[in-house]
Simulated scan of single mutants.
Amino acid sequence: EKHLVLLRDGRTLIGFLRSIDQFANLVLHQTVERIHVGKKYGDIPRGIFVVRGENVVLLGEIDLEKESDTPLQQVSIEEILEEQRVEQQAKQESEKLKVQALKERGLSVPRADTLDEY
Rank of each mutant, 00 (worst) to 15 (best):
F49M: 14
F16Q: 12
R8A: 13
T31L: 00
R46K: 15
R34V: 13
S68R: 12
G42R: 03
I14P: 00
I20R: 15
N55M: 03
S19R: 13
F16G: 02
I62H: 08
G38C: 08
N55V: 00
Q22M: 10
I62W: 04
P71F: 03
L58M: 10
L64Q: 15
K40I: 08
P45V: 04
S19V: 00
Q22F: 11
G60T: 14
E33R: 15
H29M: 08
H29D: 14
G47S: 06
R46I: 03
L26N: 02
Q74N: 09
S19F: 11
L13G: 04
L13C: 07
K40A: 14
D9S: 11
L64W: 03
R52P: 00
G15R: 07
T31H: 00
I20W: 04
Q73P: 00
G10E: 07
F16S: 13
Q74A: 12
G10T: 06
H29W: 10
I62K: 08
Q22S: 15
I14Q: 13
F23T: 11
G38M: 09
P45C: 01
I14N: 01
R52W: 07
T12D: 00
K66T: 03
L13T: 07
I14C: 06
V32Y: 10
E54S: 15
G42D: 06
T12W: 01
S19G: 13
P71M: 03
V75P: 12
P71V: 05
F49E: 15
E33W: 02
D43H: 02
V57P: 01
G38F: 10
L17H: 07
E61D: 02
L26T: 02
G42P: 07
P71G: 03
Q22V: 13
L59R: 05
L13Y: 14
E65Y: 10
N55W: 07
G53M: 11
V37Y: 07
D21G: 11
G38T: 12
R18Y: 03
V27L: 12
L72H: 15
L64H: 11
